[in-house]
Design a protein around this nucleic acid. Structure first.
Lengths: 224, 224
DNA sequence: CGCCAATGTGACCAGGTGTTCACATTGGGC
DNA sequence: GCCCAATGTGAACACCTGGTCACATTGGCG
């Protein structure tokens, strides 16, 4: 391993440590360089600055694709869609629970919008769509993407929330018991999804998305 | 209105504008004072610094209690629990949609943990628990807090996510059509909740929370 | 009027940030 | 050995931050 390669690795690891300890708000050329025990000039010379460093770091991570058995497995069409969705949700929970920098990045994506976060979100969104489209094609006239969105967004929020708050509606977010209750709730909710593999009915394809008259209007706000 | 009162209001409004435009990350004595066209010294003299300013501002806002018809109405026990939950969820969605500073504060609570955010979160959590306890008492052996947690957390995440990303699982987060789909999904999911007012069965009280053997273990991580 | 507290201003400070510079040290090929 | 590029360092830069200070202006009350 060359000398340069060694210091590059030191910088990348320092970045990851910094993200874990202080969140994305605390990362910068100064903090990372000091943690790596290296001159910050090298961050500019080797990575072209913080954005470049972030890019190469997240490229090494390769979150959402790493060890995702559900998303890329092609024997998926054999299993009932509710099963696939449950597996996907469980994978998401465990991926977040075992990867703290991933949690920090996803918190960061809720606030910052720039080239780096956009690239991250785009890759994730396209991967998620590939999954949901395949599952959606298998089921009947329920709006699977919307239903799964609620549940997936729910587990995401609760995982991210666990860092700053201990309870949500009285459910503990930092104990195995609390997550056991939440997981049971998810299974309870997915019970309403179709268990067998029907084909989409004709009326569902044309009318499902606008079937109800309820309207949620988003008022314009200052600063938008 | 006294002179001091006028400048205090100017500072408070400047704070709110700043929160809307830059999010909580962009607020500070300098930016707020400059926006209010006032010397920052006055922020220290009148509010005791940024924390004090934040406190009095959020006290004036009084988010979660303002116009919450579901949470405090006592005719609630007349309606089926699923109905109450749906109303509560809809109130949450509309409260966030029409109040951008509230959105920014809730994003901030996901990242920052300090006296101010703690006070905010505590008041919200206690109000939410009062609601969920009343509803929970009305239903049978389903774990209502956990189920509602998933759905409420889901709409929260999707509302907060709309700022930085346009789609989630292909569902548009910035159009009335997208939120119509999501709302229909919520109604679909709540269909599994009890529609009538049963009393808790005996076995549910003792065994519901640990009935399943599934375990979600949270591995320890560096930095925790 | 005249006084004094209330109100407001600008400057100042120490510390932190990102960025670039000139310079020292190292190490591999001739 | 020697030389030059690669590697690494520390200082300097301009800018911004929160916090405090001394000073100017205002306004109400005796």
């Amino acid at each position: 391993m060359s000398r340069r390669e060694r210091t590059e690795r030191a910088i990348l690891q320092a970045l990851e440590e910094q993200i874990c300890e202080t969140g994305m708000a605390g990362v910068g050329v100064n903090s990372v360089a000091k943690r790596a025990d290296v001159s910050k000039e090298l961050i500019y010379r080797y990575f072209g600055g913080m954005p470049g460093l972030m890019l190469t770091w997240m490229q090494e991570q390769d979150f959402w694709t790493k060890s995702s058995s559900v998303v890329k497995s092609d024997e998926s069409s054999e299993r009932p869609p509710a099963d696939l969705i449950l597996s996907m949700l469980r994978e998401q929970i465990e991926a977040l629970a075992n990867n703290q920098p991933l949690c920090e990045v996803r918190r960061w994506e809720l606030i910052e919008r720039n080239d780096v976060s956009a690239k991250l979100a785009d890759r994730r969104e396209s991967a998620a769509r590939a999954f949901i489209d395949r599952v959606d094609g298998l089921t009947d006239d329920t709006d699977v993407p919307a239903v799964v969105s609620i549940m997936l967004a729910g587990v995401l929020y609760l995982m991210l929330r666990a860092k700053t708050e201990e309870y949500f509606l009285g459910v503990p977010l930092r104990t195995p018991e609390g997550w056991e209750r939440l997981w049971n709730a998810i299974e309870h909710l997915t019970a309403s999804l179709p268990q067998d593999l029907k084909t989409k009915s004709l009326r569902s394809l044309e009318g499902q998305r606008a079937s109800r008259a309820t309207t949620l209007q988003r008022k314009p706000q200052k600063g938008e």
